[in-house]
């Protein structure tokens, strides 16, 4: 078992003919993910990657033809809102959006629309997810993680890779690694993933990687203390970030005294979560 994606995932890639879309489609195929279709308006009927993946004009047509149940979006920010809304109406039940720099008002509209439907959104501005040995839906490098029983959920990309890599070095593996993304308004959040990990028989322990901005880590801490029986180890990035500055991610900003690393660490520790001082220490704690 794992969460959100596994061998049965049938993936459609929105924006498959773009440079990023094509490159990562090949990576996902090489990993063993079932990429069953791609879309690009006007290129329906073509094939990409030496005839491995058919291209359709729309997601709906792709779903009807191939039975895709998950979509991944590699569409630039300008078209990302439309791509997410298109996916929501296409028949898939899980949508992963990697796109960065989407205007926040677009995301508020998208999120409100998804809330009305029983469809899960992951991202945007995220690396997607990886269920080691089963499926990769996104851009997390496949060779940095091995199958195991640690669930990982994170707002960051490369910082998460660090942690997966350090776990692998110590012979520890992941059940699923989920990047929820660095935007202030997104789909799946910490609590959604914690709930799934708590219910997943393969997952025995969970790593939660947060950063400054917002109060999602505080809410997650509260959820852990009330609902989790599995061990959770935490890390918060941005202890040295100055207030009022956006640290790369749109959502990584301390505003009006809210969203500091210190507050988040305090909330996690209060919930009985051990918080690592630096990323490599996460693996050290789990190895104890």
């Amino acid at each position: 078992m794992s969460i959100l994606a596994d061998k049965s995932t049938r993936l459609v890639v929105q924006g498959i003919t773009g440079r990023e879309g094509l490159f990562h489609t090949e990576q996902m195929l090489n990993y063993g993910t079932q990429v069953v279709a791609g879309t690009r308006p006007g290129k329906g009927g073509e094939w990409v990657l030496d005839g491995k993946v058919p291209v359709f004009d729309s997601v709906k047509v792709a779903v009807e033809a191939t039975g895709a149940n998950t979509s991944i979006i590699f569409v630039p920010a300008k078209g990302a809102k439309d791509a997410m809304l298109e996916a929501a109406d296409s028949g898939v039940d899980f949508v992963v959006c990697l796109t960065e720099h989407i205007p926040v008002q677009d995301m508020m509209v998208v999120r409100a629309y998804y809330d009305q439907k029983a469809i899960r959104l992951l991202g945007p501005n995220c690396p997607g997810l990886l269920t080691p040995g089963e499926a990769k839906v996104g851009i997390i490098p496949g060779d940095i993680a091995i199958p195991g029983n640690i669930g990982v959920v994170s707002r960051s990309g490369t910082l998460t890779y660090e942690v997966l890599y350090a776990l692998k070095e110590r012979g520890m593996g992941a059940s699923t690694c989920v990047g929820i993304g660095g935007d202030p308004v997104n789909g799946t959040n910490f609590i959604d993933c914690l709930r799934l990990f708590q219910a997943d028989p393969q997952t025995e322990r969970v790593v939660l990687i947060g950063e400054i901005g917002g109060t999602d880590e505080e809410k997650a801490a509260d959820f852990v203390s009330k609902n989790m029986t599995k061990q959770v180890v935490g890390f918060i990035a941005g202890k040295t970030a100055p207030p009022g500055k956006r640290m790369g991610h749109a959502g990584a900003i301390v505003e009006g005294g809210e969203g500091t690393a210190a507050e988040k660490v305090k909330a996690l520790e209060k919930a009985g979560i051990r918080v690592a001082d630096h990323p490599e220490q996460i693996a050290e704690i789990l190895a104890e």
């Binding site: 994170s154 707002r155 960051s156 990309g157 490369t158 910082l159 998460t160 660090e162 660095g182 990687i209 950063e211 400054i212 890390f235 990035a237 941005g238 202890k239 040295t240 970030a241 640290m247 790369g248 991610h249 990584a252 690393a261 001082d277 630096h278 990323p279």
Partner: peptide, 20 residues
């Protein structure tokens, strides 16, 4: 650093080991 989260974590670890 590549990546915002890792960039923040790198700043933090410099501080952790006594630098700024």
């Amino acid at each position: 650093v590549n990546g915002a989260g890792l960039a923040m974590a790198t700043m933090d670890i410099i501080k952790h080991f006594g630098g700024e």
